[in-house]
Amino acid sequence: MKRLVVKFVLFVTLAAGMLLAVSSVCGNLRTRVLKDRVFVFSEGTTTLIAGDSHPQAAVNPALLPGAESICEGQEGYFFTYHKLKYFLGRNPQIARVILGFSYQNLARRYQELFLSSEQEATRLLESYFVLLDDEGVELLRDRISNKRPYYVNLLKFRYGLPIQIYRDKDLLREALGAALRREDVTFFGGGFHKSEKSSVEGKQMDAKVRLYFQDEKETYSGVSTLMVEYLKRIIQLCEEHGVDLTLYNAPLHASFKSRIPGQAITDFAQVRDQLLARFPKLHYVDHVDESLPNESFGDGDHVNSLGAAVVTGRLARLIQLSH
């Protein structure tokens, strides 16, 4: 029995030691990769384009001097806030942020889906864990009844445990000494979405409008106070870092806009006016009604790269003018 206890304790100690060693290597790798490579832009990068799929499709960083896009589809202000906090902290050279600001960004049902769906919350916790601060993590964690994803992600991202490490292309590339690409990091976002496909279709637009603005009872779900709160935090964050913030309303196809509930447009205008009144240094650019041919739209609420070429050019001129 003594032999057993000794062996058992020895084995557990060895296993723990091994895991600690592996974790510190992986954790180190991950931190180095993130701090030195992924989250650090070159000195020449002075403009960040942030938000969800709308600015992702509409603003082409190649056409703006010194711009990089960190947009990600379906990203609400809650996540964009944490993303920006992380990036602005590590990149003092950033002087301007262009943030997507459109009707669906404030739609309560769509933006707060992750608060009611355990699956969504778990997926987002996993994707954004590294970027979230403690309050953010707690908010998500409290929405999930099964706390395991939280603990697993904690062990993985904060303590470096090599859980499912084969999935992290960035780390493997780094370890093998290959050239690292920002797109390889899962939660970072794909950046500018390049595509010339065009498919504007009535049924698709109906479905999208329903998804964005209607709740289960098929009525307009109202404005998300949580998202407005985080939008204000983004504005304050930019002020703190001395960064110029432009809210950008990307183009929508006319027949898509006509499908949006009138109340949603009114609510949006109200929020916009309140923000502009409260934060005098805030800019707002409205390209919603920019007249563009059908071929320039990828679908009802996104332009494709043809449309992006046009509106990014106009945006660039506006920015130049404001200086």
């Binding site: 084995f11 060895l14 296993a15 091994m18 895991l19 592996v22 778990t122 099964n146 395991r148 994803p149 697993v152 445990l161 090599p162 859980i163 499912q164 490490i165 084969y166």
Partner: peptide
């Protein structure tokens, strides 16, 4: 033997699906 057992533990940590 012990390397095999330790390797096994590592395999469970790396390849396990925990939630």
């Amino acid at each position: 033997r012990w390397s095999a057992y330790l390797g096994f533990v590592l395999a469970v940590v790396v390849f396990g699906v925990f939630y």
